Simulated assay, not measured.
Amino acid sequence: MKKRSKARVALYWLIFIGMFTVVPLLLIEGAARVYAHYKYGKPGKSYGLWRYDPVLGAQHKEHAYNSNAETNDYGFRNAEDVIEPKPEGAWRIIAYGGSTTFCYNLFNEEAWPAQLEKQLRQHHHPQDQVLNGGAIMWSLGHAFARARKDLPALHPDYVIIYSGINEQPNAAFLELDGVKMKDLVERGEYGRFATNLDQNRWIKRNLMLVRILDYFVYPLLQKEKEESQIEKERRAQAMQTMSIEPDPYVLENYLQVLRRFITFIQEQGSTPVFVAQAHGRNNRLNIQLTAYSRRGMEVARQLGAIVVDANEMVEAYEGEPMDLFSHSGVHYSKKGAEMLGAWLYRRVFQPLHTHP
């Protein structure tokens, strides 16, 4: 009898604790999902852009949405599904890269791949399609891994590569897992990419509560911790003394992956278009991060890719360069994305259909 009483008391305590912990959390999770659905919901699509992938760890989910983006039937950042079969005379283009291709700070239709598509539909074919294969924090190795699945299935006419600034972060994330880029390169193991990125966490992909904590609660807590003057000076000094040269091992990996990526594109019957990355804030960090794609220009030319430099667009702009970028200096503003889309059309694609 006493044993039964103790078990019953323990059960009551578990129920009591659950009522004041688990149940409120479930209610908050449910309320957040209902709010997201009514504020941002898209017919036939589910909330949350990421799903598990056995190779990449995570990739964009098909038919998904969040507060400023949505994906199509292939998980590209397009509201429109892939047009099948591809219309006669129309071009299918896939743009790969990291957040500077995805354009996380903009809505779908504002991102530069969508702006390029707009130009093409106005001037070339009304059903030209530019599929946005960019993903936050992805290195060139991540993009290549995805392209190996996409290209055999979709047979694009052109593949744009706009990638480079995430090579050093990729190496840093690999090192957190005990893998050093130096060791990989010395062994001739190229193309290794991190699978421990933020979106690879199951709880981040599936729980609204975690996103609320990450995007709203933690930033507020960080604001309360004001950086001391000494910390500010140390950070400024580190920025002033950092090298503008890319890490030699990270660069070698990038160039080797680029060679393989471009060769693969050509083997699939597509034309590679390599775009060197631009920046608007001329600090040492941005110079260093965009140096990877600048070093890639010669490799891409040697392999027969179409090569252009987005810095030409920035340099030709008569206003303040940062007008074209967000606070990071490498992610395009709405104005910058619109200009890049139009510039790519004029610089790359207009000559192809007016003077094939």
Rank of each mutant, 00 (worst) to 15 (best):
E167C: 04
G141I: 00
F173I: 01
A153F: 05
A135F: 07
I165S: 12
E175R: 15
P169K: 04
D183Q: 10
Y158I: 01
A135N: 02
L213G: 06
L174I: 02
R201E: 05
R211Q: 15
A147C: 00
N170R: 02
L197R: 15
P169A: 03
L213M: 09
R201L: 14
L184Y: 04
I160W: 06
F173M: 06
R211I: 03
A171V: 08
G188P: 11
T195D: 02
I212E: 09
R192V: 11
H124L: 05
G141M: 01
R148Q: 15
L131Q: 10
A143K: 01
E189T: 10
L174A: 04
H125E: 09
I136D: 11
H155P: 12
A135M: 15
R187Y: 02
D198G: 03
I160P: 02
R201N: 01
R146P: 00
M181K: 14
Q127T: 08
F173W: 14
L174K: 03
L207F: 14
E175W: 01
L213D: 10
L174R: 05
L213T: 00
L197H: 10
P156M: 06
V130T: 08
L131Y: 13
D128S: 15
Q129S: 01
R211V: 03
S163R: 00
M208I: 13
M181L: 12
L151E: 01
V210Q: 09
N196G: 06
V130N: 11
